[in-house]
Simulated assay, not measured.
Amino acid sequence: MRRLALILCLVAAPLAAQDAGDKARAAAEALEAASVLLDTADEAQDRVAALTDTVRAYEDGLTAMREGLRAATIRETELSRKLSAQEAEVARLLGALMAVGDRAAPRTLVHPGGPLDAARSGMLVAALTPGLAAQAAELRADLEEVTALRALQQNAANTLQEGLSGVQAARTALSQAIADRTDLPRRFTEDPIRTELLITSTETLQGFASGLAKITEDETGPPLPPITDRKGSLPLPVRGVVLHGAGDRDAAGVARPGVVIATRPGALVTTPSAATIRYAGPLLDYGLVVILEPQANLMFVLAGLDTVFGEAGQVLAAGAPVGLMGGPAGNNMSPSGEGAGGDRSETLYIEVREGDVPEDPLRWFTTDKG
């Protein structure tokens, strides 16, 4: 009902308000579609894939809703400031309209100087009236737009809250579906003792990544097809914006060979292509880490997750979920930081390694979506 109210509010709004709310309308429809996906995910043959699509749909819908809400907020603020600055002019306009209004008595236009002066006064009033009417119409349009925008913001905020509840339910269902999954192929079985020894004996990510390939045994099945021909066109593992490029120094003054992506709390992290999980768990000072091997001698390192899915040795399809970002869900509510990264409070570190050599991840991934 709230999404319907939002759409009806947009349809009835003045044209400028409708322009400011176009994204909100599209977002309301996207969130409605996401809720339908969530309702039907239990019946899907592949629940994990269906719920992954559902979470992504919610994330895209919520992003569009924030952008639409922010546009409406900015427009409403501009109009409110304009009207506030015109208070004196508005008062004079209202006084003039009352003086020549329909309810004014005929003697109002009678001039004490006689018929000639009365005629001149009438001509003057006739010349001024269209201008006064135009100002009144402009003022009325501004007031109607402010009213429509405020109603839009209220309905959009309600829809946004519903979407946040929906995406949280979808994430919970996805986590359970992954826990119940038993049909993933494996390329090798991890030796936890050797992995733990490698963790304790290495002090750098480079050293750990280099040692991973040497501690696996009994690899089965053909290797995954190479993805070199897709270099530069792979999707980022998470919805976000680049905060630091390869080699840039962070707030602590540390320069790393990977990139830092600013994401929203709870954002879904997926594998950019079919890949084998080489490692999933805590590592050094990187927090929870997933290391993917899409082809021989190529590794994608994803660090800073709050939750990781899967186990070392499992083979994942492209777009399969590998984890979730952390952070309080309430950070998702504010539209004011949209575009400035203010609500993207989590960071995912991505590193690409070919053999023992790090490579700029932006040579592999597209970053045209924020």
Rank of each mutant, 00 (worst) to 15 (best):
A91F: 07
L205T: 14
I178T: 07
T270Q: 11
L292R: 06
V241N: 00
D285W: 08
N158T: 12
E89C: 03
T172E: 09
V357P: 01
D180R: 15
A318H: 01
A41L: 06
P115Y: 06
A91D: 11
T40S: 10
S233Q: 15
A88E: 14
A312W: 01
E144K: 06
A312S: 15
L10Y: 10
A49K: 11
P222L: 13
G122Y: 06
T366K: 12
G240M: 06
R249S: 07
L283W: 03
A280F: 06
G221W: 03
L10Q: 09
G114D: 01
V269E: 00
A41P: 01
T367I: 12
V259D: 00
V110W: 10
K369L: 14
Q86W: 01
L268K: 07
T202K: 04
G319D: 10
S334E: 07
G68D: 02
L197Y: 05
Q153I: 08
T73L: 12
A134N: 09
R75Q: 05
A252W: 13
P185I: 08
V254M: 09
F309N: 02
A280G: 14
A91Q: 12
L93F: 04
R66P: 02
R25M: 12
E217R: 15
Q206K: 09
H244L: 15
L143I: 09
P294G: 14
L234I: 05
I350G: 00
P106N: 06
L83A: 02
P282S: 06
A96K: 14
T366E: 12
R171F: 06
R70E: 11
L4W: 05
L37K: 12
G163C: 05
E311I: 09
L324T: 05
N332I: 05
K214G: 03
T366N: 05
G253I: 05
E144G: 04
S345L: 11
F208I: 06
I178E: 08
T63R: 15
L164R: 15
A173Q: 11
N331Y: 15
G330Q: 10
G339S: 03
A141H: 04
E59I: 05
G341N: 01
P272G: 02
R75E: 09
L31S: 01
L298I: 10
R2F: 11
R230M: 10
A137Y: 08
L284Q: 14
T307R: 13
R353K: 09
G313E: 03
E217V: 14
L128G: 13
